[in-house]
Amino acid sequence: MRGTRAQMFTLEGVLSALVVLAGMAFALQAVVVTPTDGGAPIGSADGDRLEQILEEATENGSVKRAVLAWDGGAFDGTPSGSGYFVDGLPDNGLGTALRAGFDSSTSTNVFVHYESSSGPGTEPLAYNGAPESDAVRETVTVALYDQDSVYDESGDQASGTLESRGSGFFYVDDQHPATDLHAVVELEVVVW
């Protein structure tokens, strides 16, 4: 009688262990299925989307127009004193493409990196806070020529070119005065 009872206890123990084990295995498996989700909308698919957005914006000239939208002291259309867009993106082709490509709950930072005679520099175009750990980052390079027009915030051509506006107008001066090349800059976009 007592032996049967002990075996029953043992059987209960095994079954309990199996139940706990199954629960833990299921929980671990669920984490593995979505390793980077964490409830946030950014994941590998959104990295692909950022690539596509930047590729299209590069091909249709939106990236270049955004980089050239400079009013002499800041990116055109930015709030006075900041020099870059805060809590939003510019109302041009690049900004529209980024807004359309990502959920409104995401945030985006855009920077322009360049190399000048005084060393490397960075000009923020849009800053919306510190990125989170699941942020997606992508960069493209843009060659700027002396004959390139300057643009306004909405992507329309403004008067003058990098050459005609003269030294000191643009955030990076002519790095190659002997050629048509003004500078090569790098546009960085971070989305989270």
Binding site: D48, E51, L54, T58, V140
Partner: peptide
């Protein structure tokens, strides 16, 4: 995909 973006940026540089 980064290769396609890099290629597109160089193509845009040549085109302009």
């Amino acid at each position: 995909d980064d290769a396609t973006t890099a290629r597109a940026s160089i193509a845009a540089d040549v085109r302009s």
